[in-house]
Design a protein around this nucleic acid. Structure first.
Length: 279
DNA sequence: ATTGAGACCTGTCGGC
DNA sequence: TGCCGACAGGTCTCAA
């Protein structure tokens, strides 16, 4: 489930359990996720205290007293759960009696809380970066603006789309354009903005330096869709339903629109949209 | 440089 | 019920 709102919800869930807490032990139940764990992963984590739990795009960043940063990505199917001290029967031995299927990494905090990373598809990743590695990270350093920050405005979005020949949908999936949207919220934002996913991204581009109406609408739609999704994640963790995503054949939710939600594939991924009100 | 296609891995769901 | 293929919310790499 992890696009920006879901990752943000995970961040807020984990924070109270790990912030200012010491990592007592780390259990690796395999040698890799999408890529191998870095050398000395466990040794460099055990004994450290967590200074902060941050999110950038779909990445979680846990900074440590050693100045290293634990960089984590949930991939498609990654999730965390925390079991309280009362559930933890980990004394001494290996983790634990009867770990769940796909429980790949377990952090036992000095408080007794047990933080477990589960990821059936193993598209997730964990890396441990020195400050220099963090500053020069090939992916992080190229990410576009955080969509909910003031740094993300219509002019920025328009500039990022200038000269782009890909469709709007694909542009929104490009993490260098804006960081944190995935397949669901790209469709959702385009519907709110009333823009067709198939138009060239360059229709958003600046017009003699000034952002166009469509850029303003899309920027606002992105912020609104993500903010509402985070809200929903926090309030009820029931998997939320969407305006267009996974609603092929249903009525368009826009007031006064009689369209039927359609689905088409773009770059091998499903796009959901209303052919009537998205121009 | 940009773009599209394929790969990574497992689980689930619909059709037969 | 059981098998089989298609598909799933994300990146990364490679070739055109």
């Amino acid at each position: 489930m992890p696009e920006l709102p879901e990752v943000e919800a995970v961040r807020r869930y984990l924070e109270p359990y790990v912030m200012h807490q010491q990592i007592a032990r780390v259990y690796l139940r395999r040698a890799d996720l999408r890529s191998p764990f870095p050398r000395g992963f466990r040794r460099r984590l055990e004994g450290q205290t967590v200074d902060s739990v941050m999110r950038r795009a779909k990445y979680l960043l846990v900074t440590l007293s050693s100045r290293d940063t634990l960089l984590m990505h949930l991939g498609m199917s990654g999730s965390f759960r925390v079991d309280g001290p009362e559930d933890a029967s980990l004394d001494g031995g290996d983790y634990p009696a009867g770990p769940g299927l796909h429980d790949h990494v377990v952090f036992r905090m000095a408080s007794g809380a047990v933080v477990t990373f589960n990821d059936p598809r193993r598209f997730g990743s964990m890396d441990l970066l020195t400050p220099v590695q963090l500053a020069r990270h090939p992916v992080l350093s190229r990410l576009g603006p955080e969509p909910l920050s003031s740094a993300f405005d219509a002019a920025t979005l328009a500039r990022a789309c200038t000269g782009k020949k890909v469709s709007l949908k694909l542009a929104l999936l490009d993490q260098r354009v804006v960081a944190g949207l995935g397949n669901i919220y790209a469709s959702e934002a385009l519907h709110v903005a009333g823009l067709s996913p198939f138009r060239r991204a360059s229709i958003i581009a600046t017009l003699s330096g000034a952002p166009r109406d469509s850029a303003v609408r899309l920027m606002r739609a992105i912020k609104r869709v993500l903010a509402q999704a985070i809200d929903r994640q926090i309030r009820d963790s029931r998997s939320s339903r969407f305006r267009v995503y996974d609603r092929e054949g249903e009525r368009c939710p826009r007031a006064g629109c009689a369209g039927i939600i359609a689905r088409r594939s773009q770059a091998g991924r499903s796009t959901f949209y209303c052919p009537v009100c998205q121009k």
